[in-house]
Design a protein around this nucleic acid. Structure first.
Length: 132
RNA sequence: CGAGAGGGUCAGGUGAUCGCGGGCGGCAUAUGCCGCCUGAGGAAAGUCCGAACUCCACAGAGCACGAUGCUGGGUAACGCCCAGGCAGGGUGACCUGACGGCAAGUGCAACAGAAAGCAGGGCGCCGGCGGGCCAUCCGGUCCGUCGGUAAGCGUGAAAGGGUGGUGUAAGAGACCACCGGCGGUCCAGGUGACUGGGCCGGCCAGGCAAACCCCAUCGGGAGCAAGACCAAGUAGGAAGGCGAGACCGGCAGCCGCCGGUCGCAGGGCUGCUCGUCCUGGCCUUCGGGUAGGUCGCUAGAGACGGCGGGCAACCGUCGUCCCAGAGAGAUGAUCACCGCCGCCGGUCUCCGGCGGUACAGAAUUCGGCUUAUAGAUCCUCUCGGGGG
RNA sequence: CGGGGCGUAGCGCAGCCCGGUAGCGCACUUGAAUGGGGUUCAAGUGGUCGGAGGUUCAAAUCCUCUCGCCCCGA
């Protein structure tokens, strides 16, 4: 199943600031009220946002590494999320927390891990939306 | 050719697909879309110094405190840079140096050693006296005791000049010559640190100031979460403690309000005293609100090139150029090929496969320092070997 | 952006200010008391003082640089 976020093809969509989670209060809300799924490389939280778009937030703590390493991890996570943005129904906030082994992972492994987590989250989202 | 010294530059490249921040223009204007331009470093790092800028009350004097410490220059400034002096290291090119003062004061030195800061006497050497033994005598030797001595032994990181001589009972800068070191003075060179030399003195006045300290110079405090504006919003709320008001004038003509003088209290972003300024109730504790936006925010002690001055750091002048500005924080992701390095295999001047390709990410902005760093490349110089 | 603290034996800490011997508790080893264990007693082993350089005769201690960890304020 696919949900088109923008007019245009699903594979080359952008990921501008409207798809990003930027405020500290939003992060706190998702991690407190939402549900989580874990993977050795990352942890995913999800919560409804009552908006017509999906928003992603990324958490890379200082435990992961130096500034260069943290920035690289964040960019690769953002790229992976951008490629799979169309697989998520609109109206959800998603927070991804990086775990330490992600530093050594290849991009294909990161993308695979994200795909697994999104697949597990999608069924729960469908239940919640049907219930609503 | 080998080994080395000093300095500079670069920080993999090309292509494809898909993206992100900022600026401008257009269409639209709830939000967006399209086009063009632009977008990390030599250290952006550590935050160790110095400044700009902003606010505090335009910020003064003394003390305290802190920093710096050979000389001259450069600079907006510096704890930085350049040149020089001195000391140490290296065959050399060169490198290194917190390099003012311990003949101002107060302190410190374990263990060893007889003795460690003012001298000191264990063994030894020498002399006097007493006694024992040997000897015909001259005397010799041993023990004790009282002195002299700083040559020798030995301890130590360090034992208070060195060598030679005179001298003496033995010795000693006690005296002499030379050398080394110190102080004073004069001359010459140098802006100066300092260097060279002459004369005189006195023979020694030890080490540690990254020990307290003294001297000289410098330093008001805080920091872009500085600070300014807009919007939204709460409670000029509660408790406790301390307290000092007086007079004059005006309005009012009850409560009271305004202005001034004197006094008092509190505060003034590290402490104390003074000066000065601000407030008129103040202080402490508890409680309440704020996590929106805009500016500051990138044209500057700016970059590059030419010319001129200077040994140099650097400065002057002319021309050209505009070079990131985010805010959960852009500057990227994936793939292919070519460079470079290593390993393995082959029909080993080549081909194929695999792996690696550094340190590291602007956050107010500059000038430095320090630390990290795969490699590539250029210039100058030194030493050794060989050849012409 | 600014400020503070810590690093010493396997673990938790003294010693640093004012420089000369690295010490305490638990743990470990051996021995004794017990039929055995625990407990107790006695003896013992064990430390590049985070790293590098410097000052000094001598550095855990003083100075400079650096690494790691933790905390606080705006």
């Amino acid at each position: 199943m696919e949900w088109s976020q923008q007019p245009g093809g699903p594979g080359d969509i952008g990921m501008k600031r409207q798809h990003r989670l930027l405020r500290s209060a939003d992060f706190a809300r998702v991690r407190r009220q939402g549900r989580s799924w874990a993977h050795p490389l990352m942890v995913l939280w999800a919560d409804r946002n009552e908006l017509p778009v999906t928003r992603f937030g990324f958490v890379v703590s200082r435990r992961i590494g130096k500034a260069v390493v943290r920035n690289r991890v964040k960019r690769r996570l953002r790229e992976a999320a951008r490629r799979h943005l169309h697989e998520v129904p609109p109206g959800w906030d998603l927070v991804i927390l990086a775990r330490a082994p992600i530093v050594q992972a290849r991009f294909a492994e990161i993308e695979n891990a994200l795909t697994q987590l999104l697949a597990r989250a999608r069924s729960w989202m469908a239940e919640r939306m049907a219930a609503a």
